[in-house]
Lab assay of single mutants.
Amino acid sequence: AVSDRLIGRKGVVMEAISPQNSALVKVDGETWRATSGTVLDVGEEVSVKAIEGVKLVVEKLE
């Protein structure tokens, strides 16, 4: 799938994300809905860990 190429890519949080709420991230110039197990604020850099349906699963870039 096209989205599989995004695993391992870096992105930027466009809307705050919490474990209860998905929000938008920008990866390679494209906007995607994403979820995370932690709270992520706007502007934080993230890494794509997986794809669940049409959502990216991201975590904060260390």
Rank of each mutant, 00 (worst) to 15 (best):
V42K: 07
P19D: 12
K10L: 10
T35P: 02
V46R: 00
V46P: 02
V54T: 14
M14H: 04
D4L: 12
L40S: 02
S47P: 01
A50H: 06
A23E: 03
N21S: 11
G11T: 02
S18C: 10
V39K: 12
D41K: 15
V57I: 11
V12L: 08
V25N: 00
A23Y: 15
R33S: 12
R5D: 07
K60C: 03
R5Q: 07
K55M: 15
G53W: 04
D28Q: 05
L56T: 01
L61S: 08
G37W: 13
G53P: 03
S36D: 05
R33P: 13
M14D: 02
V12Q: 05
L6G: 00
S36G: 05
V58Q: 00
I17D: 13
G8F: 03
E52Q: 11
D4E: 12
V27Y: 01
A34C: 09
A50S: 09
S22K: 06
E62V: 12
D4M: 11
S3I: 11
S18T: 12
L61D: 06
K55H: 15
S18L: 08
I17Y: 13
N21Y: 11
T38Y: 10
V54H: 14
T35R: 06
V12R: 07
A34V: 08
A23T: 08
K10T: 12
N21F: 11
G53D: 05
S36M: 05
A16T: 11
K10Y: 09
V2Y: 10
I17C: 15
R33Q: 14
P19H: 11
A34G: 05
L6F: 06
K60E: 02
P19G: 14
K55N: 13
T38V: 10
R5F: 08
A23D: 02
S47M: 15
K60N: 04
V2E: 08
E15C: 14
T35H: 06
V25I: 10
V2W: 12
G29E: 07
R5T: 08
V58F: 01
G29D: 08
K26G: 05
V58K: 00
V48S: 01
A1K: 11
V13N: 00
V25T: 02
A50V: 03
V58C: 03
G43H: 03
L40F: 05
G43R: 03
R33H: 12
G37R: 11
L61H: 07
A34P: 01
V25K: 03
S22G: 11
E44N: 09
R33Y: 15
G43S: 02
M14P: 01
A16C: 12
I51N: 02
G29K: 05
V39L: 11
M14V: 14
V42Y: 05
E15W: 09
V58N: 00
E52K: 09
A16M: 12
A1S: 11
G53C: 04
V42W: 04
G53Y: 03
K55Q: 13
N21Q: 11
K26I: 12
D28R: 03
I51H: 04
Q20T: 12
G43P: 01
I51L: 07
G43E: 02
E59F: 05
L61Q: 06
G8M: 04
V13W: 02
T31M: 14
G29F: 03
G11I: 01
V57S: 04
E15H: 08
G11M: 02
V58S: 01
